[in-house]
Design a protein around this nucleic acid. Structure first.
Lengths: 348, 348
DNA sequence: CTGAAAGCGCTTACAG
DNA sequence: CTGAAAGCGCTTACAG
């Protein structure tokens, strides 16, 4: 593959001049520029990004470590991250942790070794030593969706508490009193917060949240299935299952179907995170929707701000309830489907 | 960040010795090794992969350019690719073309500039000059799922012809005679092949495939919606719509639902590519399933073979029909759902 | 077993 | 405006 030396030789100039042309440095004569460009063309030369990175100590690359690519929520997040990064002149390398802390650490280490300019993380756990070191060690970092409380890293996320409250109001209005939740790992912020929001909302309605109605999941489908089976085996099964993410809702649906039961007739179902298929499932599933694309874009902007020396800002968006039919027919046709014109934010 | 020089100073040896220890070179004294390892530990040293790549001309990185990350088929493909690559000591950088040739070229160029060791591509088009140049220019390359006929590059893919024949047999058995297809872009192999397979199968049953029953889609949901609307506007609408991928099936479902029609009562629906949600849609959707994980893993193995100097092999897996209820109730309960114990392959 | 030195492909003060 | 030279952090013949 042609190197800058070959181009210099072909154009009859020094490599310094070639480099200047390539980097749009102002002090290059028009003639030199023309000759260099011609040489680049005939040789099909492309600068070696590896060499450039070594010299400039910049890779123009962002690392994104997500918990699970197969989760449509994270897929969409990854897509919006890549889009915004590209618009700002960065590439992104995705590391999929599959909800496994070791795998997350593997990717963080790999990304750090590649000297990415900044790291976007949606932590799978409460914070491995490696993650904490990286955060404190000066690697520009931003948390997105999930975060680690102990460290001083900007967080871009959605607050789902109001939406969970709306959901509980909806369920209560439908006459449901025995509500259960399939939680995510307690070590993740989204894992514990969604349970807390649910518990707080139930309290407002004077409803209990017995331990037996808290299924321990890991955000993957299989755990949703197991938790739901446990619920159905209870002497007094819940009337509603609220899955803390869409994959566990899928597992719950599998379990319900396997018993020949029907939603919402035999049991109601709702999920955190909305996906296009929820419109077409049997029945359409009531869900809490996050402004995923906005989260991804805001996270990139915050990270690039940090990288380029501007003060990054944490940002919190609002999730909202989307009522469909999986919890029963709403009393009134207009139901309780709050649709704020656009998600509000609060800067921190 | 500590460099190899700092480690050498700390350990009281030369950088060459440090390098040898790090690369498990045999001729290093036990004592030197111990001292170096200790220095690495105290400094928290991590080798700079950028510098190493420049020197060795290897990045241990594979590029994967897929047509659309939001398509669960490609998400799963990407996941299996990353898994197998990791097992073989490679990282992967994913480029999402979003079914846009320009974006595909952007990613290929970016990946080439980063000097990835090899490229896995599922081309969005019939072959841009850039792709062809890269293929001919000696960059190790393997096509996965879709391919470009003109170039000599190994192809890892699934053959869906038998499954499409099974599907048509199923539909015919159910009494359907007016069958329509939403095709992918003719410039992609999967776009044209699926139509051809469908046409050939219809011919076996003496059924026509009029132009009006061929909707032109682009593998994205919106195009599936538009094509379906056009079908429904026909004086004699089809009895069955076969979407050439799962996202266009989603769009078709949206269009059908928007007209207040029901599947399969008013119109039947089937899709190429199976996804977990198809079990839970209303009704469950009959689909053709590819062995996606196997495709991804085989593609990585072929590419790594090529990179490491072993002869790579093309491989063709078999897709299979999964009958559910979206085309009507099967005549016999055991239906026609061929389930070969394991997908067969044919090497080329 | 070990170190000094060259070199991978760039960029960038420095001098002219 | 231009070029010679240093240097980014590594690896690896080469000599000892």
């Amino acid at each position: 593959m042609a190197s800058i030396k070959n181009v210099a030789a072909e154009a009859g100039v020094s490599v310094a001049t070639v480099s200047r042309v390539l980097n749009d440095h102002p002090s290059v004569s028009a003639e030199a520029r023309t000759r260099v460009l011609a040489a680049v063309e005939t040789l099909g030369y492309r600068p070696n990004a590896v060499a450039r990175s070594l010299r400039t100590d910049q890779t123009h690359t962002l690392g994104l470590v997500i918990s699970d690519v197969l989760n449509p929520y994270f897929t969409e997040l990854a897509r919006s991250v890549e889009e915004e990064a590209r618009a700002l002149g960065y590439s992104v390398i995705i590391g999929n942790a599959d909800e496994k802390p070791e795998l997350q650490d593997h990717h963080i280490r790999n990304l750090l070794d590649r000297r990415i300019d900044g790291l976007l993380v949606s932590p799978t756990d409460g914070g491995s030593p490696l993650t904490l070191d990286a955060a404190r060690g000066g690697t520009p970092m931003v948390f997105v969706d999930r975060w680690i409380p102990a460290v001083d890293v900007p967080v871009i996320r959605a607050d789902g508490r109001a939406a969970v409250r709306d959901l509980v109001a909806h369920l209560h209005g439908l006459g449901h009193r025995r509500l259960a939740i399939i939680a995510g790992p307690a070590a993740t912020t989204t894992g514990s917060e969604r349970v807390e929001a649910f518990r707080a909302a139930l309290r407002e309605y004077g409803l209990p949240l017995p331990d037996a109605y808290i299924g321990q999941g890991d955000f993957q489908a299989e755990s949703g299935r197991r938790a739901t089976e446990a619920f159905l085996d209870l002497p007094e099964p819940p009337e509603v299952v609220f899955a803390a993410d869409n994959l566990m809702a899928l597992g719950a649906l599998d379990a319900i179907r396997a018993r020949g039961m029907r939603v919402p007739h035999d049991i109601a179902l709702a999920a955190f995170d909305d996906i296009p298929w929820f419109v077409h499932t049997d029945p359409p599933i009531t869900a809490i929707a996050q402004p995923t694309g906005e989260l991804g874009r805001a996270a990139v902007r915050a990270l690039v701000d940090r990288i380029e020396g501007r003060p990054p800002q944490s940002e919190t968006f609002l999730a909202r309830l989307v009522v469909r039919r999986s919890c029963g027919e709403p009393a009134s046709p207009r139901g309780l489907s709050p649709q704020p014109p656009s998600p509000q934010r609060s800067n921190t």
